[in-house]
Design a protein around this nucleic acid. Sequence first.
DNA 1: ACCTGAACACCGTTCAAGT
DNA 2: ACCTGAACACCGTTCAAGT
Lengths: 220, 220
Amino acid sequence: MVSRVPSKARPQLSPDLVVAAAAQVLEREGFEGLTMRAVAAQLQVQAPALYWHFPNKDALQVALYDHLMADLVFELQGRDWRKDIFDMAQQLRRHLLARRDVALLLPHGFFVGPNIMGHAEKILAILIRAGLAPKDAGYAMSTGFSYVITWVIGEADLVARRATGHDGNDELAQAMVATGAYPHFAQVIGSFEAGGDVDGQFAFGMNCLIAGFAQLIPER
Amino acid sequence: MVSRVPSKARPQLSPDLVVAAAAQVLEREGFEGLTMRAVAAQLQVQAPALYWHFPNKDALQVALYDHLMADLVFELQGRDWRKDIFDMAQQLRRHLLARRDVALLLPHGFFVGPNIMGHAEKILAILIRAGLAPKDAGYAMSTGFSYVITWVIGEADLVARRATGHDGNDELAQAMVATGAYPHFAQVIGSFEAGGDVDGQFAFGMNCLIAGFAQLIPER
DNA sequence: ACCTGAACACCGTTCAAGT
DNA sequence: ACCTGAACACCGTTCAAGT
């Protein structure tokens, strides 16, 4: 007789366990390696088993994204709302960059999850307290959120390309500049030869947005 | 003997022909249907034939994106740089929305192609003429570009979801609001019940950016 | 030089069947 | 209720072989 409660019993599958396994696969194999089969293997289970807990891969990805936001806690000064918003953007950026390929999990726009909601609530509180109308606060948040996500995808891509050596895109750009048909572009490229300041560029865009947000506060 | 120049001769394959076929497939089947096999079928050719003209699917996608930008011509007033930048963003948005799934072609950041370069040159000219330093102009352009792309992906997704009926995300949002744990979020959702103004929201974000750009112009 | 045929090594997902 | 085995209908890509 086989024991009904085997000692090596791997715990029964649950959505949380699946998400945790997916997180490990993502960190180890990257976004391209995040397949249903790989997640199943991580759990020592067959791929179709996952479909009992998630309707499809998209749903798993969304849950995974939310899961990876669980340990993001904004640390704010609470003196100037502009600084607070900026700090949140910066901390979100760092958080996303520190975990492999997280930003790629969200092909489509904003969505809802328990952890995400907590962050959104905090951001909206600050914006509304700063004087923005609720509707404007909503616009501002989603705009800022999109900015950070898009930025992180670009930045991760950049460091990946630098790691693998030459760009391929850079060469093409050089070639086109050499034609002399793009004087302004050439000028801009030239100003980047020092290497470009990633932190500075991120701050630039974010501060642009914040400056725009500030204009929405009605005069009192 | 078979004639050496068959009358029904489909012209020999070329990168341009492949890209044109890919454009048709994208418009007809959408991004998900854009497979090497489908493009090949459009050309009445076997899939591996494409690999003679493009090293891989990514390269084809990039070429396709650039191709789809060929018939975008910015129409500008040339009086106020802010208005011109805004108009370009608006026209780019409309252009992207009018062609199915174009914005999805660019998973990674900016890249280079002949048509793209022409547009970049025009944008940079305006920004530099407005008084931005070349480096700032470069930052501004890529920030604005990312904004529009991300926006369009979100907007296309939105109309797609509306077309298919209920959201699934909306329901979840409602449920979370009902918990009462997210008062600000609830407030924001409430202010959108009128339906939300897509054009207005796009303009909002873009104007935020432009306001930020303006702050970079040194005082004279 | 340019394309076909056949195959490799995968995918997400479904579904009957087991326990 | 929860998972396996086997399969379906695909993918991108490689490569020997044809012309």
